Amino acid sequence: MGERVHVEINAGIAEVRLARSEKRNALDRAMFDALIEAGEKLKGALGVRAVVLSGEGHGFCAGIDMRVLAEMESGAIAGVSHLASRTHGICNRFQYAAWIWREIPVPVIAAVHGFALGGGFELALGADVRYLTPDARLAVMEVRWGLVPDMGATQFMRHLAREDIVRELAYTGCEFSGTEALAYGFATRLTDDPRSMAFATARQIADRSPHAVRALKRLFNRAVIVGPEAGLIDECIEQQALVGSRNQMETVHADREGRKPRFEEVSSATATAVASSADAHHGQAAWQ
């Protein structure tokens, strides 16, 4: 990850910080690679219960580095010339820098201050939850450079905001505030200190059964790509794996005894087994 992205894990909470503040955390080849490396590290990290995604300096992320824009005359973006080639599952490298936060098996909370523009906005959309300052500046601004959003925004936005709002923002490239983002559906909550709120929520999540939280993320991820019949079966598969399990019963015992639960951590084998059960039932790849 080098100097672009810093990762710190403490008490089950991982903070991923974009650390290129002198360039407004702009996205260049090294930043894309660092974000993916950080996400891959956390996908397999045992004991992590939640992730906080934030940016150092005056804002979250200003989007694509202007130097990368200047190099596009060759027909490539940051060295990639065949954008439709799938190099990371269903994604290319740029898309995966935002999409990987959905594949991380625990909730990801984006803490956005200052600005999240273009690719920076798309990066925030990859999180499960987004806390913004009221005066944060956001934009689907790719059209300003004669481009379209290419980090998954068209997929993320359609589940959050009205179609006409999404189209207007993308067609015009105009900026909007954190307050407007809340009204549109892009922000979860507004606060003057998104990072503190993100950690407060992460601590709440960390106090819940890690098996149940991971099951919830799998269910919500699949809910946007399967129909009601398959989704209801997904609930049953996840619930069957939880009922009577050690962590599920620990929540009951702890409540009766008036103490904090002592949960068993999730093993990679357990997580894979449950996802594979849903995969086998539907005969399709599970989006973990």
Rank of each mutant, 00 (worst) to 15 (best):
R24F: 12
G55C: 07
K43A: 06
R24L: 05
K23C: 04
A50F: 09
I64L: 14
D28T: 03
L35M: 14
D28W: 05
G59Y: 05
D33V: 08
G57W: 01
L46E: 15
N25Y: 05
A30K: 15
G57C: 03
A62I: 05
I64Q: 10
L53K: 08
E56Y: 01
A50Q: 12
V52H: 08
R49A: 11
L27E: 11
R29P: 00
G57T: 14
G63V: 01
L53A: 07
L27M: 15
K43L: 09
G57V: 11
L46Q: 15
L42I: 10
V48R: 15
G39D: 06
K23A: 13
R24C: 03
V48K: 15
G63R: 08
K23I: 15
A50C: 05
L42H: 09
D65I: 12
D65A: 10
I36V: 15
L42S: 07
V48L: 11
A45I: 01
A45E: 15
G44W: 00
A34Q: 08
R49T: 10
F60D: 10
A30F: 06
E56S: 13
G44N: 10
F32C: 02
A62D: 09
E40R: 14
E37L: 01
F32D: 10
E56F: 01
I36K: 07
M31Y: 02
A50M: 10
C61S: 15
R49C: 04
A38R: 06
